[in-house]
Computed example of a mutant assay.
Amino acid sequence: MTTANRPYLAHLLAEEAARRTTDPATAAGIRASYPDPTTVTPAASTPPPAPAVPAPSRPTVQLTPGTALALIGGGTAVVLVVGAVLVSLLLAVAVTGVSIAVVAVVLRLLVNDLHKGR
C-alpha cells in the first residue's frame, strides 16, 4: 500500500495484522515497519523560503496636457469625417429619390398623352 501512495491505509492494515499476531515481537516489528503517517517527525533543517520575485508591472499611461489635446483633436477629426460621410450619403439618397420622382412624373405624362392620342 505504501507503493500505491496510500500510507494511512498501509498503517491501518499493519495495525490489524499486529493485533491478530500472537507474538509481541512480531507485532512490534510490523508496527515499526508501518508507522502512523499522521505523526509529524521533525525535519533536520528546513531551507528558508525563496524570496518572492515581484511580478513585472505593466507601464502606466501618463496623460500629459499635450497628449490630451492630441486625443481631443483626433477625436474631433474622426467625428467630423464620419459626419461628412453620413451627410453625403443622405444627400445621395435624397437626389436619387428626387430623380426617381421626376422620371415617374414624366412617364405618367407620356402614358396619359398616349391614351389621349387614340
Rank of each mutant, 00 (worst) to 15 (best):
D23A: 10
A84F: 05
V40P: 00
T67Y: 05
T26G: 09
A52N: 08
L80T: 05
T21G: 02
S57L: 15
R6Y: 10
A52Y: 08
H11P: 01
V95W: 02
S88F: 02
D113Y: 09
T76D: 06
Y34Q: 01
M1Q: 01
T3F: 06
T60F: 05
P65C: 03
T46W: 00
A4S: 12
Q62D: 10
V111H: 13
L69I: 09
L12C: 01
Y34P: 00
S99V: 14
T67H: 12
A84S: 08
P65E: 12
A84C: 04
G117W: 13
V79Q: 12
A27Q: 00
S88L: 11
V111R: 14
I100K: 11
L107R: 15
A4N: 12
T60M: 08
V98D: 07
A14K: 03
G97R: 05
P59D: 04
P65M: 05
S45Y: 03
L107I: 15
A92P: 00
A17E: 02
T26I: 13
P59T: 13
T2K: 03
V98A: 14
H115D: 12
S45N: 06
T3Q: 07
L86N: 02
A44C: 09
N112W: 00
T39N: 01
P37W: 05
T2S: 12
A52H: 06
E16K: 03
A43H: 04
T64I: 07
N112E: 08
R31T: 04
I30P: 00
V98S: 04
V93N: 06
A94V: 09
R58F: 07
P49I: 06
R58W: 03
T41W: 04
T2A: 10
V61N: 07
I72M: 14
R20S: 13
A43D: 11
M1R: 01
T21R: 03
S99Q: 15
P49V: 03
V105I: 13
V40G: 00
P48R: 08
T67L: 13
V105F: 05
V93A: 10
N5M: 11
L90P: 00
R58A: 15
A14M: 06
V78P: 04
P35M: 00
R118F: 10
A44D: 10
G29N: 15
A104G: 09
G73W: 07
E16A: 11
A84H: 10
V102K: 10
E15P: 02
D23V: 10
T2Q: 09
R31C: 01
T46K: 10
A43G: 09
A43C: 04
L110K: 05
R20F: 06
G74I: 11
L110P: 02
A28F: 04
G83M: 05
T22K: 04
V106G: 06
L91F: 06
V79C: 13
P24I: 08
S57R: 15
Q62P: 00
A68T: 08
L13M: 12
T64R: 02
L71P: 01
